[in-house]
Amino acid sequence: MTGHVPLSWFLALSAVLFSLGVAGFIFRRNIITMFMSIELILNAVNLTFITFAYQRQQVAGHLFAFFVMVVAAAEAAVGLAIILTVFKNRETLNIDDLDSMKN
């Protein structure tokens, strides 16, 4: 039938988003932007889970995506609290300036 989308396109989209997330995590120096890149990666993974749930016709993939969301929420709460604390103490969000453990 015409107008249908090949399954692999969804996976390719997920791959593109994943790579962009990785790139953002590596290239950017702002902690918040890096954190958002991780969220982008998690979203790409969720898309893969849901695509495979469609292919297998099973709801299990949705549940994995659901758990990823829950973990992402927990991670965001703690991560942002850490970022707030870091900013209060160091007055910077640049990851390169936070190297006091290095020496």
């Binding site: 039938m1 107008g3 249908h4 989308v5 090949p6 399954l7 692999s8 969804f10 996976l11 390719a12 791959a15 593109v16 994943f18 790579s19 695509t51 749930a53 469609y54 292919q55 016709q57 099973q58 709801v59």
Partner: peptide, 22 residues
């Protein structure tokens, strides 16, 4: 990444709305 996903999953399954109701 795109090459391998397209390679491993050739156009065997097509997605259409309503194809999975679970």
């Amino acid at each position: 990444l795109t090459y391998f996903t397209a390679r491993i999953y050739p156009r065997q399954t097509e997605v259409h709305f309503g194809g999975f109701r679970g």
